[in-house]
């Protein structure tokens, strides 16, 4: 039996290419999580408020997105949709929409949980002072909910950052696809993917440290923000 020899020098050779892919990975994850926060806040508020039709629409959205694999959604958007509506999205657009919608669905549940964890008395006190529902939400409930939402939101960002690897399937040259191309050309999966894994780690480790720090701070009490 002849074992293939691992050539570690490839790890350094592919680094510049991988880093170019990293830029797209970060861009996609950041835009995705921002879209997710906007969608998630709106949908989360709708699900707390329980206005009938909107609530049902929001629930369908959350259940469909969370109940289907992201890869299936991505392939449907990119390869399938053009055959029905005749319009093809750019790979980045398709990936951005998929990640935004996904992040939005998960974030909406985080937001909903955060809002519902705030004592009802806070909303009542604000309303008793003459504030509208939205003023009470915005000035009183959301800022308090936000502190509780922040750590799970950080985790959501870490998950999203790793999930961007799925975008490789729509030809987007993010880090995973760059790695696959380099690997196919060199026939050396180990050094290439170890390098890619290291870059993912370098990005996610400080993030999870940050999340932990936030959790500790939150445990310290409600004083200030």
């Amino acid at each position: 039996m002849v074992l293939q020899v691992i050539k570690w020098s490839y790890a350094i050779k592919v680094l510049p290419n991988l880093l170019r892919g990293t830029v797209i990975t970060i861009k996609l994850a950041l835009l995705g999580v921002i879209a997710g926060i906007i969608i998630g806040t709106i949908v989360g508020l709708i699900r707390v408020n329980r206005t009938k039709i909107l609530y049902q629409l929001a629930t369908v959205y959350v259940e469909v997105i969370r109940g289907t694999p992201m890869l299936v959604q991505l392939v449907l958007f990119f390869y399938g949709l053009p055959q029905i509506i005749g319009y093809r999205m750019e790979p980045f657009t398709a990936a951005f929409i998929t990640f935004g919608l996904n992040s939005g669905a998960y974030t909406s549940e985080i937001v909903r949980g955060g809002i519902q964890s705030i004592d009802r008395g806070q909303m009542e006190a604000a309303r008793s002072l003459g504030m509208s529902y939205f003023q009470a939400m915005w000035y009183i409930v959301l800022p308090q909910a936000f502190r509780r939402i922040l750590p799970p939101l950080g985790n959501e960002f870490i998950i999203l950052l790793k999930d961007t690897a799925l975008a490789s399937t729509v030809t987007l040259q993010e880090m995973m696809r760059v790695g696959q191309i380099q690997m196919a050309r060199t026939g050396q999966p180990f050094p290439v993917y170890v390098m890619a894994a290291l870059i993912y780690l370098v990005m996610t480790l400080p993030l999870s440290q940050g999340v932990r720090w936030l959790e500790r701070r939150m445990g310290a009490g409600d004083q200030g923000l």
């Binding site: 050539k7 570690w8 020098s9 350094i12 050094p191 170890v194 290291l198 440290q209």
Partner: peptide, 26 residues
């Protein structure tokens, strides 16, 4: 942070160590 740095150094060290001399050997 120290622990994290150490881990990264270690891994990179292994990479560098393997990358250099391994080619003539193999």
């Amino acid at each position: 942070c120290l622990a994290l740095g150490l881990v990264l150094l270690l891994v990179l060290g292994i990479l560098a160590g393997c990358g250099g001399p391994s080619e003539p050997v193999d």
